[in-house]
Design a protein around this nucleic acid. Structure first.
Length: 342
DNA sequence: GTTGAGCGTT
């Protein structure tokens, strides 16, 4: 067992823009490893952020890693300053502080399942993407993307995902521009998320077809390498939560972010105020997805980009919490996306 | 702009 108390699993983060949320920080720092808790300090008088926060990991090594690797990362235009935290909050430090939590329920000592102090993320320079190349034999773009995805290893895919997620959280504007200017990337990312079972295929039903400005592609697509993709993730067993809690989960309190999200069925992805179309009856009407919907996916209007952003913000443990049924999901995807399962 | 708070007493 590791020592019950460590020098510091908590880092002090300063120079945080006032409009950054704890969730954003958690997402950013999950790049270093599983995040236990995030607390941005607010001025009780004005309600405004004080511009600094404490991010607690599950071990000291991860905290150190965060100090090394996320030093000076830009978030919303400011470079974060990251140090190991020195002082504990109050005189009551007999264990670890449990402010904002349940008395007798200190912060969890064990990270969510799915972390084995896992492999480091190899950051991918997304800005170095090649421009779109002309397709040979007039192959259609979506099929080419599917085929390309089938050649990507799970590790590579995860690296790209993590890098994209990092970019989104640290530099949303650049991410937006990247996705807008390179729809093939947006499409590939979305399909990758479906393959990795990060996002439920049912979200496809919520995608509004564009006002069909583009010529419809051929109706029958070759299947995108059906079983070319291995199981994802490596069959973790059971929806286990950190021990000690016996299934209990502290209610969300003003004491800060604590990563304990639902495994699936993230809540309504609140669309921006820019949502143009009224809600539409789902499912049955979309049984045969019009080709324009495929264009919609590839083009990703801002609404869908918003959703993509939200989905990408899933933490690694959320990703790991999802398992199995991907085959069925993919079949469902094909059904909806291609209009046929065969 | 830069190191956490206080519904209260086992």
């Amino acid at each position: 067992m590791p020592p019950p108390t460590s020098a510091s699993r908590t880092i002090f983060v300063a120079n945080i823009p006032y409009d950054v949320s704890e969730e954003q920080l958690a997402s950013t720092f999950s790049e270093a490893g599983p995040v236990n808790n995030v607390e941005i300090k607010f001025d009780p008088q004005t309600g405004r952020s004080k511009g600094y926060a404490f991010v607690q990991f599950y071990d000291e090594a991860t905290a150190l890693s965060a100090v090394r690797n996320l030093q000076e990362v830009p978030v919303n235009g400011r470079n974060l300053r990251v140090e190991l935290s020195t002082d504990e909050p109050g005189p009551r430090r007999g264990g670890r502080g449990s402010r904002g939590g349940i008395p007798g329920h200190p912060a969890e000592d064990t990270p969510p399942r799915g972390y084995d102090a896992g492999p480091p993320v190899n950051r991918v320079d997304l800005s170095a993407l090649p421009e779109g190349a002309p397709l040979p034999h007039a192959a259609n773009a979506t099929d080419s993307i599917s085929k390309t995805l089938a050649t990507v290893t799970p590790g590579q895919m995860q690296d790209v995902m993590a890098s994209m997620k990092s970019l989104i959280t640290t530099n949303p504007e650049q991410a937006r521009q990247l996705l807008s200017s390179k729809p093939q990337l947006a499409y590939a990312l979305f399909q990758a998320m479906l393959l990795m079972n990060i996002v439920d295929p049912s979200v496809l039903q919520r995608i509004q077809p564009l006002p069909a400005t583009a010529p419809p592609p051929p109706s029958n697509y070759p299947p995108p390498a059906q079983n070319a993709y291995p199981a994802y993730p490596p069959a973790s067993s059971g929806p286990s939560y950190p021990p000690g809690g016996a299934g209990y989960r502290p209610p969300p309190q003003q004491g800060g972010y604590n990563s304990a999200p639902p495994a699936a069925g993230y809540g309504t992805p609140s669309y921006g105020a820019t949502t143009p179309a009224p809600p539409q009856p789902p499912a049955s009407g979309m049984a045969a997805l019009p080709p324009s919907a495929q264009q919609a996916l590839a083009t990703l209007p801002e609404d869908q980009q918003q959703m993509l952003l939200q989905v990408l913000q899933l933490t690694p443990d959320q990703i790991n919490a999802l398992d199995a049924t991907q085959k069925a999901s993919i079949m469902q995807l094909r059904q909806q996306f291609l209009g046929t399962a065969a």
